Computed example of a mutant assay.
Amino acid sequence: MTDVSSGHNVHLRERAYRIRRNALKMGEVQGQGYIAQALDIADVLAVSYFHAMQYRANDPEWEGRDRFLLSNGHYAIALYAVLLEAGILPPEEYDTYGSDDSRLPMSGMARYTPGMEMSGGSLGLGLSIAVGIALGLKRKQSPRRVFTLFSDGELDEGSVWEALQSAAHHRLDNLIAIVDINNQQADGPSTRIMGFEPLVEKLEAFGWFVRRVDGNDIDAVVAAFDAARDCPETKPRIIIADTRMGCGVPFLEAREKNHFIRVEPHEWQQAIEALDAARSA
């Protein structure tokens, strides 16, 4: 990882801004989608790809890479946005998002997209797959890490809790999980559908190293990733990121229901202008 400095974190904020902008430009192609999630998780993705992970943009299958698994496949637009920013995907593919024969389908598909490590869709599987990959890397004596992102709605799934227990049992200190707590899923607020608090205490009881942070505060996210990296204990690590749906675009943040949203044609430019205004503030 790069040493933390004020200048470095400014650089990460710029990356997060461009990730959000990339997502909005892709979302405009279809006029709708999981835009609010892409905006909420951009800071975490910026820190993951431009502070925490090792990879080669020109060789996405490089054996020496860290792996990033997107469990919540409907966040694919967010991952495409960071893959574009990282140079793993070429910029000319922006306007193919969600279109026929595109390498950027609306839900993540590993067979189509360079840099996409798993296919998403059915929720609750990413952490289990990450446990398997982390265990395999351990047995190969690889120093590389596995990162996996999943959503608070996935905490409804029993497979997630089985994977949490399995990772601790196998002492997978090369596994860093990230759970996006935006308190929104298809059926309503996540905490109302299936309560999961107190989450920190539950995860610690399962044998994980835990950090909970404001997922839209770059400084806090960097510190959490560094703490996860530097934890001296032989246990898996998890970062709980409390985020705001639509972060960076106030009129999208304010929408009561923004799990899957339609943005009117005239609103896309307004969203870009809101991002630009926040960047220059």
Rank of each mutant, 00 (worst) to 15 (best):
I238P: 15
Q185F: 05
A167G: 05
V221F: 03
A224M: 08
F209A: 07
R171K: 13
D152M: 14
A163E: 10
L164F: 08
A163D: 10
W161F: 04
I193L: 09
S159G: 01
F150V: 12
R144F: 00
G215Q: 08
W161T: 13
P143E: 02
A163N: 07
V146M: 01
G215N: 14
K138Y: 01
R144W: 04
D230H: 02
M194H: 07
L135F: 04
L172H: 00
A163I: 04
N216R: 11
W208H: 06
R139E: 13
P236R: 04
V200W: 12
A220S: 04
A177L: 04
E162C: 02
S166A: 14
R211H: 10
I239N: 15
I239G: 15
V221H: 14
V179F: 11
L137Q: 01
L175M: 13
G195Y: 13
F147A: 03
G153R: 07
E197H: 11
N183F: 02
S166P: 11
R139M: 11
F150S: 11
G207D: 06
S166D: 13
I218V: 10
T191D: 12
E201K: 09
N182W: 00
M194T: 15
R212M: 12
V160G: 09
F209T: 06
E197D: 13
V160M: 03
A167K: 05
L137A: 05
L175N: 15
R145L: 02
G153C: 06
L155G: 00
F209M: 06
L137D: 00
C231S: 11
G207R: 03
D187E: 14
S142D: 00
D214R: 03
A163Q: 09
P143W: 01
A186H: 07
V160E: 06
C231F: 08
A167P: 13
S190Q: 03
A163S: 11
D180V: 00
I238D: 10
R144I: 00
H170L: 14
P189K: 03
L155T: 03
G153N: 03
V210F: 12
P198R: 12
G158V: 09
W161L: 05
E157S: 03
S190P: 02
R171E: 06
L149G: 07
A227R: 04
I193S: 07
I178R: 14
E157L: 05
I193T: 15
G153K: 09
D156S: 14
F225K: 12
V221Y: 10
R145W: 02
D152Y: 09
L137S: 00
V222Q: 04
V210A: 08
N174I: 03
I181E: 06
V200G: 10
G195I: 12
R229E: 09
A220T: 07
P232I: 10
F209H: 10
L164Q: 12
G136N: 03
P198Y: 13
T234N: 15
F225W: 15
D214C: 00
Q185H: 02
N183H: 04
S159A: 06
M194P: 01
P198G: 08
D217Q: 08
I193V: 10
P198E: 15
S151A: 05
G215I: 12
D226N: 05
Q141P: 01
K138C: 02
